[in-house]
């Protein structure tokens, strides 16, 4: 499976390609080194276990460089933390991102390199690629920001059993967006067994991320 990471490399700039190749090596060495029976037991994870795991669906949206990002293909082999948020969000979104950034900085690189954070904008009208990039850079420049037509974003959310985002007018010329606040964690088996609600703390992430990276749920 880690070999398919290489398939996504051709569109990346040389430096990114080198880093991805390193990350790919980390994936390879990690999967060789880890315990083959490291499937987390019920109750071991601090996230909310889903009764029915979600498949890692296939969709393509534009990243902040304006290039197409094929979600399933370009996150293959990584623990992928998928969140639907927006940059005018003053509370839940920045706290989620700040928690993840802080924990990833503290985790050993061999674990952190196997985690990808992807935020899909639920406010594509105001979240221009530049704005989304600047906002994510405030937390971690490696975080992936994706945007596309809101209809497509809502379709993706529905496919993941999430309620679609709701635009709410707050005044004549301003609005906010109601959105699902949980982060979906996809694992190496290309499914999500667990989600993390708003209010998840660094200690919870620091506890669960290494387990998710080493988890060995049977692939589908």
């Amino acid at each position: 499976m880690p070999l398919s990471v290489g398939g996504a490399l051709s569109t990346l700039p040389a430096r990114g390609r080198f880093l991805r190749a390193l990350a790919g090596l980390a994936v390879l060495s990690g999967s060789v080194a880890c315990n083959p029976n490291a499937q987390p037991k019920p109750g071991e994870l601090r996230g909310i276990l889903l009764p029915d795991p979600l498949p890692k669906i296939d969709f393509t949206l534009a990243n902040t460089a304006g290039e197409p990002f094929a979600f399933r293909q370009q996150t293959d082999g990584y623990v992928t933390l998928l969140f639907f948020g927006f940059t005018y969000c003053p509370d839940i979104c920045p706290v989620h991102m700040a928690n993840l950034a802080a924990v990833l900085r503290k985790l050993p690189l061999r674990t952190a390199n196997r985690v990808k954070v992807v935020m899909v904008s639920v406010d594509p009208d105001r979240d221009t690629p530049e704005r989304l990039r600047t906002w994510l850079n405030a937390f971690d420049p490696s975080f992936v920001g994706l945007r596309g037509p809101i209809e497509q974003v809502n379709e993706i959310q529905r496919a993941l059993n999430l309620p679609p985002a709701i635009k709410q007018q707050t005044s004549e010329d301003d609005y906010t967006v109601g959105h699902a606040a949980q982060i979906i964690a996809f694992t190496g088996d290309n499914r999500a067994h667990v989600v993390y609600p708003s209010g998840t703390r660094q200690a919870d992430w620091a506890h669960d991320l290494p387990l998710l990276v080493e988890a060995d749920w049977p692939a589908q």
Binding site: D91, P163, T176, G178, A181
Partner: peptide
């Protein structure tokens, strides 16, 4: 002043 209220899986800010 806002509060975050979660209803039917949607978190939204209410004044």
């Amino acid at each position: 002043l806002h509060n975050v209220v979660t209803q039917d899986g949607i978190a939204r800010m209410t004044p």
